[in-house]
């Protein structure tokens, strides 16, 4: 029940994004990945569910190498993983309720009523109760983001990958989402990877931290360790001091 990323390499049209990234999210823990914009965090996350295939290296989920799986096996794996997209990626041809119900219809044998109840429940968890019949285009950016979270957690997956779940939310909603992430791990034992630029929220949810810098893992450790590290790149990033980063490179 863990996600292990080993020596991950990925380049797009010759432009190297990941250059031997290694990190591990252990069973039941929430790993926060930090990193500058464009450093390859989203790319990393897509490798975990096989949306991208590595140029070199591998991602292991539940002890299975994702890029070695056949299509059917990949779908089986994906049923265990919930993915919160950075820009929500809601299906704009359907209502919010249908969006949330999509995974349930495919992956569970719940009947209509049970699905309806579960959808209600998930929407309530992200503070969107009553929004079920709305179309995604009628929502604000923050509401979409939360709907995306509701869709990802609806099937109660064992793994949850959050790509910037709190970006663009007000402080109260942000705290609420952090609560949700914590509840998912404590109550359901979810193994999670959270990508975020929001340091406060990162410290609230993280069991461990990793920092992706120039395609590699620059730091890996507990919240205490990251507070005390003297790596200027990490310090510069979490304290928001670009001059430290410049000095380092």
């Amino acid at each position: 029940m863990s996600i292990v990323i080993r020596d991950l390499h990925k380049a797009f049209d010759g432009k190297v994004v990941l250059d031997g990234f290694e990190v591990e999210a252990r069973d039941g823990e929430t790993l926060v990945i930090l990193g500058g914009s464009g450093s390859g965090k989203s790319v990393t996350l897509k490798h975990v569910v096989g949306l991208l295939t590595p140029d070199k290296g591998q991602v292991e989920v539940d002890g299975e190498v994702v890029s070695d799986l056949r299509r059917e096996e990949l779908f089986v794996l994906r049923r265990k993983v919930g993915y919160v997209f950075q820009f929500a990626a809601l299906f704009d041809s359907m209502s919010l309720a249908d969006n949330v119900a999509m995974g349930l219809r495919r992956q569970s044998d719940m009947d209509r009523k049970e699905i309806e109840e579960r959808v209600e429940e998930c929407l309530r968890l992200v503070d969107l109760d009553g929004f079920g019949p709305r179309a995604p285009s009628e929502l604000s950016g923050g509401q979409r983001k939360r709907a995306g979270i509701a869709r990802a957690i609806a099937t109660r997956p064992q793994y949850l990958l959050y790509d910037e779940p709190t970006t663009g939310l007000d402080p109260v909603t942000r705290a609420m989402i952090d609560q949700l992430i914590l509840r998912m791990s404590s109550e359901l034992g979810v193994t999670g990877i959270v990508i975020t630029h929001d340091i406060d929220s990162a410290f609230r949810v993280a069991d461990r931290f990793a920092m992706l810098h120039e395609g590699r893992c620059r730091f890996q450790g507990t919240p205490e360790e990251i507070r005390e590290t003297d790596d200027p790149v990490v310090r510069g990033f979490i304290e928001g001091r670009p001059e430290l980063l410049e000095n380092a490179s």
Binding site: L51, R78, F87, A89, M102, G103, R151
Partner: peptide
């Protein structure tokens, strides 16, 4: 246009993660 929009807004990726081929 429809599939193109779904592709660039990652809706097709989202389908995959929900185990829809």
């Amino acid at each position: 246009a429809e599939l193109g929009t779904m592709r660039v807004t990652e809706q097709i990726d989202a389908l995959e993660t929900l185990a829809y081929p």
